[in-house]
Write a protein that binds this DNA or RNA. Structure first.
Length: 280
DNA sequence: CACGAGACCTGTTCGC
DNA sequence: TGCGAACAGGTCTCGT
């Protein structure tokens, strides 16, 4: 499920609460439980339980696809990978069948990390950089301007699709938003990064920001039963639309496999022969 | 440096 | 109906 917009939506909900759940900021952690050992990446379980108890949640933020609970001492970070979700619920409610980890909070609340496929991970560390150090820039970072982005693309000769999904190149974009951004920018997923011009690079950065913003505005994408709440899946132009007409030009959307992931694009709007866009 | 294959997991859908 | 293959929002590691 989770790419940047979904993680952002989840973090906001935890931070601000909603109709049925309170904000978690300021809450004390009274205990924790681990139901799948490998979900806790660091530290050792015994140390973790003794250190986490009694901590208070000071801040809830996001970096790339990671969520970060800043505590009064240390940071609890997590990655939802393919099927993870975070749910605030009452302690007397039954645990989800796929709950791998949970924090018990004051006043009878519980934060559950549900994750069917068991790929998700959490870390409790003093310095978040231990986990986040190799991440590329945030897509919305003001320092990442068109010139900077173009230069980063110029130094790579990878295909755009896998490059956009490389978290060391840019943090937060996954398979869905990469496909949507490439479509909006009119770029074929197999285009080699250092072959596009400045204007195209500028358009790509703008497209990435637009699709991520739209995803956030719609509270993320809900596909299958895994994540509920968002409805951006109803606004996809290409992802999951193989064989359906392009909403822009009517040509049929195609699907190819790139770097072992499905890639959806419109062959007319996103031609391979780069329309040698203006260099600069 | 870049790429492909295989792992890690469980569940649903598709084709024969 | 049944059964195996393909596929699913992600990332890591290893071999070439």
């Amino acid at each position: 499920m989770p790419e940047l917009p979904e993680v952002e939506t989840i973090c906001r909900r935890l931070r601000e609460g909603d109709l049925s759940t309170p904000p978690l900021i300021g809450m004390e952690i009274t205990g924790a439980a681990l139901y799948w050992q490998k979900t806790l990446e660091h530290p050792e379980a015994a140390n973790f339980f003794s250190q986490i108890q009694g901590r208070t949640i000071d801040q809830i933020t996001r970096r790339g696809k990671y969520f970060i609970l800043t505590l009064d001492k240390g940071h609890l970070l997590g990655h939802l990978r393919m099927s993870g979700d975070l749910i605030v619920e009452r302690q007397d409610e039954p645990l989800d069948a796929y709950c791998r980890f949970c924090l018990y909070l004051q006043e009878g609340w519980r934060l559950s990390f549900n994750d069917m496929r068991k790929f998700g991970r959490i870390w409790y560390v003093d310095d978040p950089q231990i986990v986040l150090s190799s991440l590329g820039p945030e897509p919305f970072d003001a320092d990442l301007d068109a010139k900077n982005f173009f230069e980063r693309l110029q130094s790579r000769r990878r295909q755009l699709k896998p490059l956009l999904m490389d978290q060391n190149f840019l943090a937060g974009v996954g398979n869905i938003y990469a496909d949507e951004a490439l479509h909006l920018a009119g770029l074929h997923p197999l285009t080699i990064a250092n072959q596009i011009g400045f204007v195209q690079a500028e358009a790509l950065l703008s497209a990435i920001r637009k699709v991520l913003e739209a995803g956030i505005r719609h509270n993320g994408s809900s596909i299958d039963w895994i994540y509920r709440g968002g409805d951006f899946q109803n606004y996809f132009y290409v992802y999951g639309r193989e064989g359906e007409p392009c909403k822009t030009c009517g040509h049929l959307i195609e699907r190819i496999v790139v770097a072992q992931r499905s890639s959806h694009f419109c062959p007319f709007c996103q031609p391979m022969e780069a329309n040698d866009g203006n260099q600069s």
